[in-house]
Design a protein around this nucleic acid. Structure first.
Length: 462
RNA sequence: UCCUCAGUAGCUCAGACGGUUAGAGCGGCGGACUGUUAAUCCGUAGGUCGCAGGUUCGAUCCCUGCCUGGGGAGCCA
C-alpha cells in the first residue's frame, strides 16, 4: 500500500477508503477506551486526526505513542464525529518507527518561546510555526527562480571564496588552510601567504555584485541567489553573519528601470506566497503577527512612494521632530528617520534615490550635479532597508577617479575596470536580503527564526 | 561594539530585611473518564536559584568580574 502525504489526503475529498500515512505525533488525548492522535508529516500545517480503539491495540504500543514519536498508520478514512475536523483516520494498524521519551523530549503541547526553540534548532522544525516558516521560505526561494527565469534572466553562480575586499560591504571571514598555531612569517614579520591554499589572502564573499556585473555585461540580465557572509559584530533582530542574498544585475537598465523591477519583483513574491501558502500564512496571521495579511495585501495593492534623498531630508526637517541624530543634507539617514518616513509620514514602502555620493559605494553612477549618485534604497515598515541598489558607473575615467579618490585597491579591481574599457554599457542592479524579506512575509520578529540554522556572533551551533 | 533588561523545576514565571524544609501554572509520571480538540478531574515526583570570586557568623538574594539570552543603537541586507 502506498503512503499518502497528509496534504494530498486532505485535498482528495473522498472518504471511506483505505489509507496509509506516516508522520510525527503532535498530541495524543483520550480516555480509557479511545485515543485521538494528531499526526503531522510536514506536508501541511494541518494535522490528520487518527482515532484508535484502544482495545484493539497492544497496550505497550499505545503507551509509546507520545508527543514527538514517529508512526505509520494504516486505516480507514472517514467523516469525523468530532467538530474540529472534517475527516479522520480510523486506525486499523499502527507501526512505531521511533519513540520519543516524554521525560526528555523537549517539545510540549504548550507553546514555547522563540528563544527556547532557538536552543533546540534541531527539533524546532517540528513546531507549527517553524514548519510554516520553512514552507514559506521554500516557496519564496522557488518563486525567485521562477520570476527571473520567466523574465529571461540567467542564474549566475558567483564565487563564495573571493580574494579582494573591493566592495567594502563589511568585515570579512578569512579563509585559510594555514596552521593558525604556527603561521608562516616573512622576514619583515608579516604573514607569508605563499604557502596558503590559494597563495594569497582569501575570504568568504560579502556580495556577488561585482561578478554579477560581469555576467550582465555579457549575457544581458542575470541574478545571483546564494549565501553571503559578514563578520560584523552585529547583534540585532535584523542581522545574520551568514545570510542569503538575491542580486539581479541588468544591462541597459537605468535607475527607473531598476526601481520598476524591484517593485514588481517584491510584489510578485508576496503574491506568490499568498496564493501558495495560505494555510501557513493564516496560521502566522493568527498566532505570530496580528495584521500580517493586511500588511501583505497593502504592499501588493499600493505603489511604492518614490522620492529623492534630498526631498526626504526636507520632509524630516519640516516635521518639527526632535531627532537623536541630526538630519542635515549629506548625513546618512538613521533608523529613526527611515522609520518616520515609512511608518508614520507615508505609511507605505518608500524608495529613496539620489543619495550623496560620500555615503554610498564607489561603483554607483555619478549624477551631473557632482554631489549625488544614482542609488536607490527600498524601505519597508518594520525592517527598514530591504533592498539597496543603483545604476552603476559605466564611464571608465569617472569610475577610476572614484576608486583612486577613495584609496581602494585599484590593482585588485583590474578585471572590474576592464568591463568599462571594453564595450561598456549602462547597467543597474540591486540586492535583496532574503531573510529580511522572509521576515516581512512571515511576520517573524527575529531574523534568527526565518533561517533553519542561524549564524550570529558567538553562535554556530548545529 | 555601546546602552539597557534578564538568567530560579523540562517550559513560562513568582519569591525572600541576607537566616532552618525555594513556590505556582503548564509539561512528565500514576489513576479516573465511551469522541477528545492546547480535553477535563484527582494524586505525585522533579531544583548546584547562569559561572567565578568577594563581603558576611551565614549569600540564590548584596558587591565585582565573566558567560549566555532579550530589547534598543551603530554597521548593513
Amino acid at each position: 500500500m502506498k503512503r499518502e502525504k497528509i496534504k494530498a489526503l486532505l485535498a482528495s475529498g473522498g472518504t471511506d477508503r483505505e489509507v496509509l500515512v506516516k508522520g510525527w505525533v503532535r498530541t495524543k488525548r483520550g480516555s480509557k477506551n479511545i485515543a485521538f492522535i494528531a499526526l503531522n508529516d510536514g506536508s501541511t500545517i494541518k494535522n490528520i486526526q487518527v482515532v484508535a480503539d484502544v482495545s484493539g491495540f497492544d497496550e505497550q504500543l499505545m503507551k509509546e505513542i507520545t508527543t514527538g514519536a514517529c508512526i505509520a498508520v494504516r486505516g480507514r478514512l472517514a467523516g469525523s464525529e468530532g467538530s474540529g475536523q472534517d475527516v479522520e483516520i480510523r486506525a486499523e494498524s499502527i507501526e512505531l518507527y521511533g519513540k520519543a521519551d516524554p521525560e526528555t523530549y523537549p517539545l510540549q503541547k504548550k507553546g514555547h518561546t522563540m528563544e527556547f526553540l532557538r536552543e533546540i534548532a534541531h527539533l524546532r522544525p517540528r513546531t507549527n510555526t517553524f514548519g510554516a516558516v520553512l514552507r514559506i521560505r521554500h516557496a519564496l526561494a522557488y518563486a525567485i527562480h521562477k520570476y527571473f527565469n520567466d523574465k529571461g534572466f540567467y542564474y549566475l553562480h558567483t564565487p563564495i571564496i573571493t580574494s579582494s575586499d573591493a566592495e567594502g560591504a563589511g568585515e570579512m571571514f578569512q579563509v585559510t588552510t594555514l596552521d593558525l598555531g604556527s603561521v608562516p612569517k616573512k622576514t619583515d614579520g608579516s604573514v607569508d601567504f605563499s604557502d596558503d591554499f590559494f597563495g594569497k589572502p582569501t575570504n568568504l564573499t560579502v556580495s556577488g555584485q561585482l561578478e554579477g556585473e560581469l555576467g550582465a555585461l555579457a549575457i544581458g540580465e542575470i541574478y545571483t541567489f546564494g549565501p553571503t557572509f559578514r563578520a560584523e559584530n552585529s547583534n540585532t533582530p535584523r542581522h545574520l553573519a551568514e545570510f542569503w542574498m538575491i542580486e539581479p544585475e541588468m544591462a541597459f537598465y537605468d535607475l527607473n528601470d531598476n526601481m520598476d523591477l524591484a517593485e514588481d519583483f517584491v510584489k510578485y513574491l508576496i503574491r506568490y506566497a499568498l496564493e501558495n501558502c495560505s494555510d501557513d500564512l493564516d496560521f502566522l496571521n493568527k498566532m505570530i503577527s496580528k495584521d500580517l495579511l493586511e500588511r501583505l495585501d497593502f504592499v501588493i495593492n499600493n505603489e511604492f512612494i518614490r522620492m529623492t534623498y534630498t526631498e526626504a531630508v526636507g520632509i524630516l526637517e519640516a516635521s518639527g521632530r526632535k531627532w537623536v541624530y541630526g538630519t542635515g543634507w549629506g548625513k546618512d539617514l538613521q533608523a529613526e528617520h527611515e522609520r518616520y518616513l515609512v511608518e508614520e509620514y507615508f505609511r507605505c514602502p518608500v524608495i529613496l534615490t539620489d543619495y550623496p555620493k560620500v555615503i554610498k559605494a564607489f561603483y554607483m553612477k555619478q549624477n551631473d550635479d557632482g554631489k549625488t549618485v544614482r542609488a536607490m534604497d527600498v524601505l519597508f515598515p518594520g525592517i527598514g532597508e530591504i533592498i539597496g541598489g543603483s545604476q552603476r558607473e559605466e564611464n571608465y575615467e569617472k569610475l577610476l577617479a572614484r576608486i583612486q579618490e577613495l584609496g581602494l585597491p585599484e590593482k585588485d579591481l583590474w578585471w572590474y575596470l576592464e568591463t568599462r574599457k571594453f564595450g561598456t554599457a549602462p547597467h543597474s542592479g540591486f540586492g535583496l536580503g532574503f531573510e529580511r524579506f522572509v521576515q516581512f512575509v512571515t511576520g517573524m520578529a527575529n531574523i534568527r527564526d526565518v533561517i533553519p540554522f542561524p549564524r550570529t556572533p558567538k553562535n554556530a551551533e548545529f
